[in-house]
C-alpha cells in the first residue's frame, strides 16, 4: 500500500528577520470581495445562524475580555476570542466572511476561553462551527491553511491515527533537535529497529501510530462515508479524496482476500468480525 501524500517543504530554522520580530499572522479579507464571494458569504452566514449549535454555544457577552486574556493565540496573532464571539453573535455576513479567512485558524482549541468565560459561552466550539463551514464550502483561504496537512489527513482518513513515526522526518523537524525523531542517527540503527525496541508489538510500526487492523480502518472509512465527511473533504481537495478512495478500495480487496484465507479460523466467531464486509 503506498501512501503518496506529499510532505510540505518549508524551512523551519529561524531567519534573522523572524528572530527579531514575533511571528504574526497576516490578516486577510481586506481586499474587496467579488460578487461571487459575497454570495457565498451570504450563504455561509445563513447556514451559520441556522446551525443548532449556534444557539447552544453563543449565549450572550459582557465583553469583559477574560477569554482573550487566557488565549494563547491572542498573544501572538491578531486574534481575540472575544472578537470571534462578537462576530458570531452580532456580525453580518461580511464580518463573518472576513473572520473565516484566516482568523479562525489562529485558535488553538485549548478551551481556555470556555473555562474562563463568566457567561458560559462555548467560544472554541463556535469557532469550530465556522471552520467546519469554511471546509464544507472549500473556501480558498482554508485550502491554503490546510495545505500542509495532506499527510496527516491521509493517515486519519485511512487508519485513524494522525501521526506516524516516519512523519517525524529530521529534515522537516530540524527545530526539534537530534533526539526527537526516533534518534536513528544518534543510536546508529534504522528507524525500524528503534520501533522494534518499543515493548509492544502493536507499536512496532513506522507507518502509523500503531498497527491498525484492516477491519478497523474499513469501519472508520464507512463512518466517514456515512456521515458526510468524505463529501466535505471532496469540496476541499478532490484529488486527495480520490486518492483516499483508491487506498480504501485496495484495502477492501485485501480484506475480502483475507476472509477467504482465514476462513477456517474465523468460523464460529461472532459479532462484527463475522458479518462486516468492508
Amino acid at each position: 500500500m503506498s501512501i503518496v501524500a506529499h510532505l510540505p517543504r518549508r524551512a523551519l530554522t529561524l531567519t534573522e528577520e523572524e528572530a527579531a520580530a514575533p511571528p504574526t499572522m497576516e490578516l486577510a479579507g481586506r481586499k474587496r470581495a467579488t460578487a461571487e464571494e459575497r454570495a457565498l458569504a451570504t450563504t455561509i452566514f445563513g447556514e451559520f445562524h441556522a446551525d443548532s449549535r449556534h444557539r447552544e454555544f453563543v449565549l450572550g457577552c459582557l465583553n469583559c475580555g477574560e477569554c482573550t486574556t487566557g488565549c494563547p493565540a491572542a498573544r501572538f496573532y491578531d486574534f481575540s476570542p472575544r472578537e470571534m464571539l462578537q462576530i458570531a453573535q452580532n456580525g453580518d455576513a461580511t464580518t463573518l466572511w472576513d473572520a473565516m479567512q484566516e482568523k479562525i485558524w489562529a485558535c488553538c482549541q485549548c478551551y481556555t476561553c470556555n473555562m474562563r468565560c463568566r457567561f458560559g459561552n462555548d467560544i472554541a466550539g463556535i469557532i469550530s462551527v465556522m471552520r467546519e463551514l469554511s471546509v464544507r464550502h472549500g473556501i480558498e483561504s482554508t485550502r491554503r491553511a490546510l495545505a500542509p496537512f495532506g499527510r496527516s489527513l491521509t493517515l486519519l482518513m485511512t487508519v485513524g491515527t494522525q501521526v506516524s513515526s516516519d512523519m517525524i522526518q529530521p529534515d522537516f523537524f530540524r527545530d526539534w533537535g537530534p533526539f526527537a525523531t526516533g534518534s536513528d542517527k544518534v543510536w546508529q540503527v534504522s528507524a525500524d529497529i528503534m520501533r522494534k525496541a518499543i515493548p509492544s508489538d502493536v507499536l512496532q510500526t513506522t507507518r502509523s501510530a500503531w498497527e491498525v487492523s484492516v477491519q478497523t480502518s474499513l469501519e472508520l472509512f464507512r463512518i466517514y462515508e456515512e456521515t458526510g465527511v468524505l463529501d466535505m473533504l471532496r469540496g476541499l481537495d478532490p484529488d486527495l479524496t480520490e486518492m483516499l478512495v483508491d487506498i480504501i478500495e485496495e484495502r477492501r480487496e485485501e480484506f475480502a482476500e483475507a476472509r477467504e484465507r482465514f476462513g477456517e479460523e474465523l468460523k464460529g466467531m461472532q459479532g462484527p468480525v463475522a458479518t462486516f464486509s468492508g
Binding site: 469550530s128 471546509v135 489527513l153 487508519v159 485513524g160 491515527t161 491498525v212 458526510g228 476541499l236
Partner: peptide, 15 residues
C-alpha cells in the same frame, strides 16, 4: 482508531 478529534479541532475536516 484514534478519536480522530485532530480531524475536527485541527483541520475541521470532520463533524
Amino acid at each position: 482508531t484514534s478519536c480522530t478529534a485532530w480531524n475536527y479541532h485541527g483541520t475541521a475536516t470532520s463533524n
